[in-house]
Amino acid sequence: MRIIVDRDLCDLHGQCVLTAPDIFRFDDEGELQYLPEVEGEMAARAESAASVCPTGAIEIKP
């Protein structure tokens, strides 16, 4: 599954980081970094992270 974050929508809440820290993280500059492709268990966690994004900035695509 592909992870796409809309940087215009992202408001750096960090809910995705709290939900799936193995996929999403803040770097030292406070910018959001994430794995672009995940499979299996990680894909399910990426979907959970997308669902709790307050601004709906994360899309998970096959």
Partner: peptide, 10 residues
């Protein structure tokens, strides 16, 4: 400082 919450969440 949202980054600071992660370790507590974990």
């Amino acid at each position: 400082m949202p980054r600071g919450l992660l370790k507590y969440r974990l």
